[in-house]
């Protein structure tokens, strides 16, 4: 992480009534895998569209490898690979034709940079004569990634690449990103999935157009500082209500089939919670103290902000 590959300073963009991105600043090091984590509508796509020169920012500026995204947009486009959230390759061209087309308009050939996409492309190569529109969701993503990489970009911007992709393909996709990182490519990726955050070098938690926090995933969880308990019972709905009435409970949220409880002080232990819940008539209880996850941190940040 020598110098910053991507820099944004006070970037803002608003549409008619919505302030989609509010004065966002960050710096991303070269070769870093940087995640933007936030719910739908947080402003991730708008932020990305400004970085890839598709939207003009209202305020602030941004640069990619030292090139300003507004004044040097043409040069920026040469060193950038962008994969929009919506599949946007030509559905009526075949896999191979799409790849060739994107290679040629960047003035390169598939052969020249084949080593970059080899791992990904071999998986879809058996279908190279199939129309892109007839590929499955996971294969479409692989093709889109191949096309975004074919000109050996310095910076790769992926807008929700794993949304709507099955669990296995998601895992594979992140493994590929890990390999690309070793090629020295800076990768910006946005996702609504919290579990993908830990796979990034650093993440920015983003909500309502503002960045709540930027840090390494484990730093974020480590610095959480409040005890978290995972509670299970056979009456999950009442469980949340009961827990919220317990003293010192800051938040109780459903995670799968268990409830994560955040306490505002550390003088409570699992036993006390169990006793309390038993009095409330809960049965089949399982209460354990756990490490805070990234999602706990995110929810905590969201609550404390508002």
């Amino acid at each position: 992480m020598e110098k910053n590959a991507v820099i944004a300073e006070n970037l803002s963009k608003s549409f008619k009534k919505v302030n989609a991105v509010k004065s966002v600043s960050f710096g991303i090091g070269k070769g870093e895998l940087f995640g933007f984590i936030g719910p739908d509508g947080a402003g991730k796509s708008t932020l990305f569209r400004m970085l890839v020169t598709l939207l003009l920012p209202d305020e602030g500026k941004a640069s990619i490898s030292g090139l300003d995204v507004v004044s040097d947009f043409r040069k920026v486009r040469n060193i950038l690979g962008y994969m929009p959230g919506k599949f946007s390759l030509y559905q009526d061209l075949t896999v191979e034709q799409n790849l060739n087309f994107y290679a040629t308009i960047f003035g390169t050939t598939v052969k020249e940079n084949y080593h970059l996409i080899k791992d990904i492309y071999v998986q879809i190569e058996p279908f190279k004569n199939r129309l892109a529109g007839n590929l499955s969701g996971g294969m479409k993503q692989k093709l889109a990634l191949s096309c975004a990489l074919i000109h050996k970009p310095e910076v790769l911007v992926l807008d929700e690449p794993t949304t709507g992709v099955d669990a296995v393909s998601r895992k594979e996709f992140w493994e590929m990103l890990g390999r690309l990182k070793h090629e020295g490519i800076t990768i910006l990726v946005s996702t609504p999935y919290m579990d993908e955050a830990i796979l990034c070098d650093r993440v920015a938690l983003i909500q309502d157009g503002s960045i709540l926090r930027i840090d390494k995933p484990d730093e974020i969880t480590k610095s959480f500082g409040k005890p978290v308990f995972a509670v299970k019972s056979d009456r999950t709905h009442d469980l949340i209500l009961d827990l919220k009435s317990f003293r010192g409970v800051e938040a109780a949220n459903l995670f799968g089939n268990q409830v994560h409880v955040v306490m505002n002080n550390s003088d409570v232990d699992a036993g006390q919670i169990t006793t309390f819940l038993k009095e409330k008539g809960q049965t089949s209880l399982d209460v354990r103290e756990i490490e805070a996850g990234i999602e706990d941190c995110f929810i905590d940040l969201m609550i404390n902000k508002s």
């Binding site: 020169t53 962008y82 946007s88």
Partner: peptide
């Protein structure tokens, strides 16, 4: 409509 213009627009064309 299909969205392909997005991908074209980020190229140096």
């Amino acid at each position: 409509e299909i969205g392909t213009i997005e991908q074209i627009n980020v190229t140096p064309i």
